[in-house]
């Protein structure tokens, strides 16, 4: 894969300082009912964390843990009910309009379901060149070159660009989504369960690709997943969430060998692994 000097984003914030930081984030949703009859769902409860440049930070938890909402908050796809988000020391908590749009070229997302993330009526070329045109103002030969570069980076043949999403498999579509996200040259990539919808063999391909891209483009990842084994392979540090709370942040090694928090241990033990016996569990309290 061709990495040109250009493909590494200039102006990366210095290591040592967090790239993105959440301070006491709270996100409350109103569920049900007009006329003020609804009740609140607190999806994210006072979460604080910092992600450093160049690292892969895993966010794990079960359904309802709030990890996806937290990911969306970091991307500013949602606005927090309270708390602060800082990107490269800038307060992005309440950004609007054109400033928010500028943020988009720094932080990008790859979603879980590659079958829904791509517009079925747009060719691959259209899907990827849209951000190239709108955000980087590329056109003509320059656009073509960059498009080819991106496709090669994710391991797709350049001829793919004329085709429609339905001609591609799940894993290939996920690669397309990656190429689209990388088109803006982001520093931070939020990946929301990127491999959950994929088969084991394809998952392996994507994981390898993600690791390679991180190394070569010096990307920072926030990797959201319920699949602990995948997180273990990709991430350096792990945050464990439950019912909207961030229970602990630990290194990946620590999580695998000896997590401090009891729930983290339960989570780790529950992962069905070849070679591991069924855990002795009593019926736990249902969520």
């Amino acid at each position: 894969m061709t990495i040109t000097a250009e493909s590494v984003k200039p102006g990366i914030p210095e290591a040592g300082k967090p790239l993105i930081e959440a301070r006491d984030l709270v996100k409350r949703f109103r569920a049900g009912g007009s006329f003020g009859h609804g009740h609140d769902v607190i999806a994210v409860k006072n979460v604080s964390l910092a992600v450093y440049p160049g690292e892969a930070f895993g966010l794990v938890g079960e359904s309802g843990s709030g990890k996806t909402t937290l990911g969306r908050l970091l991307l500013r796809l949602e606005e927090p009910t309270s708390g602060q988000i800082l990107y490269d020391d800038k307060d992005i908590t309440h950004l609007r309009g054109s400033e928010l749009r500028q943020l988009r070229s720094a932080i990008q997302i790859v979603f879980q379901d590659p079958y829904q993330a791509l517009n079925p009526w747009m060719t691959i070329r259209q899907a990827i060149s849209e951000p190239l045109k709108l955000f980087r103002g590329l056109k003509g030969a320059e656009l073509d070159r960059e498009l080819a570069n991106l496709l090669e980076m994710v391991g797709l043949p350049v001829s793919s660009q004329k085709r429609l999403p339905r001609e591609f498999s799940g894993g290939q579509r996920q690669r397309i989504c990656l190429a689209r996200a990388l088109a803006l040259k982001p520093s931070l990539l939020v990946l929301d369960e990127p491999t959950s919808a994929l088969d084991v063999s394809v998952q392996a391909q994507i994981i390898n690709l993600l690791r390679e891209l991180q190394r070569e483009l010096n990307l920072t990842y926030v990797f959201i997943s319920h699949d602990l084994a995948v997180v273990g392979q990709v991430c350096d540090r792990v945050g464990i969430m439950r019912y909207g709370e961030l229970l602990e942040i630990t290194t990946r090694d620590q999580f695998i060998t000896n997590p401090a928090n009891a729930y983290s241990r339960t989570l780790r033990d529950a992962v069905p692994e070849v070679g591991k016996l069924l855990p002795l569990m009593q019926a736990q309290e249902e969520a």
């Binding site: 394809v202 390898n208 992962v271």
Partner: peptide, 21 residues
Amino acid sequence: LLEALPRLELKRKELASIPGT
């Protein structure tokens, strides 16, 4: 398939993926 399986283990390895689909 067994080689492509990510394991929750300390060793990080390049997952042997199966080419193609």
